[in-house]
Design a protein around this nucleic acid. Structure first.
Lengths: 218, 218
DNA sequence: AATTAAATTTAGACAAAGCTAAAAATTTGT
DNA sequence: ACAAATTTTTAGCTTTGTCTAAATTTAATT
């Protein structure tokens, strides 16, 4: 399995959100930052290897084997991210690029031992769940902060957008996973939110609120 | 810099033992387990990039830039080996293959932080020195056990052959780096050695003695 | 010094993964 | 339903790193 093949499987999994939807060539090309024609070539190869179901012009979906491979790569990626943050003091906006490289290292023992070193974490630094060896993971019941109503409270459990810009914004404003967020007001005009986090008051735009996941507590 | 280019530089460095000797195409091909014609192709590319000095039919040597790159890869390889042994409980015969992959991960921050996590180790699990960020490392004054005379004593500081077979042999016989080894007798007939290690007596073949490095203490 | 042997390089081919441009299939809009 | 727009695929080319087989240069041996 080449790096490129692994990246395609991962991309297909992410676009399909883990389900078995039919994914379009264009969508994959966009996600991979490559050309549709290149995607078609690779899809054919993955199809030969029974990692994806493919019918010309009809899109692709992962087979069980493909899904399992994708999950194992995602597992590695997220475990390495935890390692970088917990053991090497990376900040959460710096880990993705390096984890993209580390996820392709081939050694089952390595990843099992890493899992153990990190004490079998269930979530990565962005709040995304880490699949276990068999590809199983808990999906917690989370909502976007933007879906909350005034006076709702929630625990910050993840980010939707994990771009460096957004994560740095959160750092700057001392918003971290685990923080309790209360919606004190909503502005109809621009959709912005008035929040209380750790006794501090904030006003955040709708765009910010649409990229923070919370677990409702009351 | 591709993985392959990095591997060639590392191979040239190892064959030349860090010096600026002229290395033959065949020697590189053997070390890399590839064909001489492939080596010629790659050498040309490395020469274009001023990483090696090359004159047709006359062999190659590393330039300063090439040597510095080789050292940085060796640094990464050996740091990862320490990590695998110290943090992930790998045994010293299992680390090489995985480190061969990890050494190509590109992130200066990663390797600096790893170095720190491991508390700036000076030697890898096989006793080989780890270059610092600037490519400097201490060469300790070591000899092959086979060069010792009867009644010489030395501390075991490294292995020449780091094949899995040899390392497993040492494990099986509880010989580890740091052990004090005393030569109690030498057999002229087959060149074998009678040793005392940790109060145990051993007889080892000349081949074994020719692959263990010791630092003489008296 | 000439010839043989060995080492090295060249030439041409291949597979992987990408690209562009053109063709074909599908979807959309009226 | 049919032309236009979009999506997808095909065909052919490029680069990287490898290979084999043939040619060339250097080294060794008589």
């Amino acid at each position: 399995m080449t790096h490129s093949e692994e990246n395609y499987l991962k991309a297909i999994f992410h676009i399909g959100k883990g389900g078995v939807n039919d994914i379009s060539t264009n969508a994959i090309a966009e996600q991979m930052e490559t050309k549709p024609s290149s995607v078609t070539d690779m899809i054919k190869k993955l199809s030969e290897k029974n990692l994806v179901n493919y019918k010309k012009y009809k899109g692709v979906s992962l087979t069980d084997a493909g899904k399992s491979t994708a999950l194992s790569i995602i597992r590695k990626h997220r475990l390495w991210e935890v390692f970088l943050v917990e053991k090497l003091d990376f900040s959460w906006d710096e880990v993705h690029e390096v984890a993209e490289q580390l996820e392709h290292i081939k050694s089952e023992k390595l990843i099992d031992k890493l899992d153990k070193l990190l004490d079998f974490p269930k979530y990565d630094p962005h709040g995304d769940p880490i699949p276990d060896k068999n590809g199983n993971f808990k999906v917690i019941d989370k909502k976007l902060l933007s879906e909350l109503s005034v006076n709702d409270k929630g625990i910050c459990v993840g980010v939707k957008d994990s771009s460096s810009q957004f994560l740095k914004f959160l750092d700057k404003n001392k918003i971290a996973l685990g923080d309790v967020i209360e919606v004190t007001d909503k502005e109809d005009f621009d959709g912005s939110f008035q929040l209380k986090i750790n006794a501090n008051s904030f006003n955040v735009s709708n765009q910010i609120a649409s990229n923070l996941f919370v677990q409702i507590t009351e």
